[in-house]
Design a protein around this nucleic acid. Structure first.
Lengths: 190, 190
DNA sequence: CATTTACACTAGCGCTTGCTTGGTTACTTA
DNA sequence: TAAGTAACCAAGCAAGCGCTAGTGTAAATG
């Protein structure tokens, strides 16, 4: 077994696992199903991962790392204009949410299945991501682009964005950018 | 076993099941855990419910029925003022969400575990509830209280509201009504 | 008084689960 | 060419799973 390694093989297995976890849910996904999807026998799975828990942690870590770096890049690309930053953040959120949909759905809906150790470790990653949001929202409030309680506003925005995975159809006419723009327009003071 | 009965005993068992489903998730909740929580042996459980699936369906049906009747009552109590109706609907949503939190969390996050028959039956209930929302939002759009695409706006609002179950702490200083008012204030054109 | 009904029990069947063990194969490196 | 290593497999164990069969008992019903 490998400790925290990121071999190409393991990355590919993680990607497949994410897909199954979304399709079936973590608990209903058996190690035999995972193995079959990966084209190996169930016993061989435990050469790559210590146990089933570690597969879940790998999926979530991968997705959250991606989201974090994409959001950081998006923020750096735009000037210090609070409105541009708000737009950029919403777009980056939805972009990564649907580019890496499986991993994020797992992160959003199977987080509770993590054991305490993995959860503690990954919480730091998630907190770092949310800190970016808080900063952007604080700036938008200071510039009076939006109004209200900073805590509530950020929760509402993240809720509206995260919930999109439950209804958004990427094959439809709307792009993720359309969604982001519409949401920002909806909450902006005019 | 009882077909679609709603004896007080069954209602109480359903309430306990909802609590366990929230704590552990549907898949991880075993019939033995359910039985113990109910103070009976696991075999006796199947006198009240045909199978584990039916317990899940009972939990979700109970919660959705409640939400529907509360929302209807709230809408009837206010005049035809679109703004009052928007407020009332948001308040009713959060009120029922936290009065009957366990059932609603199960409905929101364990829906996929329903078998196709139960899902089809309960979808009608949920659709009836969402139809109330669509109507209220259409009126608000017509009155120019809010702006945007009717479909997207309703999804964003419901997303923001439903996501509250992931962070709202009822023992904190804010009431569900506070949340509803803040959300409506956030999205209203000024 | 006889019968039915509601509710609970004991015992366990048949199956699936996550995971382990002991060993094989193919490729890389010294 | 010998040693090491990553990747895999066949076989199966112990535990836990949903659910069933058959029985007991007290209260309601005819």
């Amino acid at each position: 077994m490998n400790v925290m390694n990121a071999s190409p093989r393991r990355k590919e297995l993680t990607r497949l696992a994410a897909q199954l976890f979304v399709q079936e849910g973590f608990d209903r996904t058996t190690v035999r199903m995972l193995a079959q999807e990966m084209g190996i026998k169930s016993g061989s799975l435990f050469h790559h991962f210590k146990d089933k828990q570690e597969i879940l942690a790998a999926v979530i870590e991968e997705g959250t790392q991606n989201a974090l770096s994409i959001a950081k890049a998006a923020l750096q690309e735009c000037d210090n204009d609070p409105e541009a930053r708000l737009h950029a953040m919403a777009r980056a959120h939805l972009e990564t949410l649907f580019a890496d949909r499986n991993a994020h759905v797992v992160a959003l809906f199977e987080w509770r299945r993590l054991d305490p150790d993995a959860s503690a470790h990954l919480s730091h990653l998630r907190d770092a991501y949310e800190a970016l949001w808080v900063e952007v929202i604080d700036d938008a409030l200071a510039a009076e682009l939006i109004h209200g309680d900073r805590f509530l506003v950020s929760r509402f925005i993240l809720g509206a964005l995260n919930w999109t995975v439950r209804w958004y159809d990427p094959s439809g006419p709307r792009t993720p950018d359309d969604l982001a723009d519409e949401l920002v327009a909806m909450i902006m003071a005019r």
